[in-house]
């Protein structure tokens, strides 16, 4: 009995401190950051129209519909005939998540930068301005979930652009 009680007290403290997590958190489901190299930031260009991979935020102006492809760029679509939308082009912009338009100027984020494109000819958007470091990139420190383990971000590996749920041995971070 005398040997058991200290062991039970020890167990109690382990459980109390760890809360509602696995009693033996050696190997656990945790979020792992997906990195991308900052050198890819300037890889901007116009491609022919293609299918969206990760459908993101939408914007509309006149007969032009725009959709962000999460962290990849902006799809431009002609919706003058709403039941026959026609894809015009894909504007490749790494780490883009937001869209806004005024007149013929498209504003998109590119990581921490704000870009301005002239889209008078939506088949050929032209990059005309970059404002560097005007806002911090969203969601790069921790996954967009609470009550989860995650692999701590190592900034030397690049910019965090996504999170994947995997089995991780002894994940060190939690939120």
């Amino acid at each position: 009995m005398r040997k058991i009680v200290p062991f039970l007290v020890f167990l109690f403290f382990i459980v109390a401190c760890e809360g509602n997590v696995d009693f033996f958190p050696g190997s656990n489901q945790a979020y792992v950051p997906v990195y991308a190299k900052p050198t890819d930031l300037n890889n901007i260009g116009t491609e022919s129209a293609r299918a969206v991979e990760k459908p993101g935020k939408i914007y509309v102006i006149g007969n032009l519909l725009l959709q962000n492809d999460l962290n990849k760029g902006v799809h431009l679509v002609d919706i003058i005939i709403p039941n026959q939308p026609r894809k015009i082009a894909f504007l490749r912009i790494p780490f883009s998540t937001e869209i806004s338009v005024k007149n013929n100027y498209l504003y998109v984020n590119n990581f921490n930068d704000l870009l301005v494109f002239n889209i008078t000819d939506p088949q050929n958007p032209a990059l005309i301005k970059r404002l560097a470091n005007v806002f911090p990139y969203h969601n790069s420190e921790y996954p967009p979930m609470s009550g989860v383990y995650f692999e701590c971000v190592d900034k030397t590996k690049g910019i965090v652009v996504d999170w994947k749920l995997e089995t991780v041995n002894e994940p060190k971070c939690r939120r």
Binding site: K57, I58, Y59, V60, I61, G62, L64, T97, E98, I99, S100, V101, K102, N103, Y107, N109, H138
Partner: peptide, 13 residues
Amino acid sequence: PSGQGGSLARFTI
């Protein structure tokens, strides 16, 4: 002149 975005936008004009 500024079109419209959705309710989840982080940009607005």
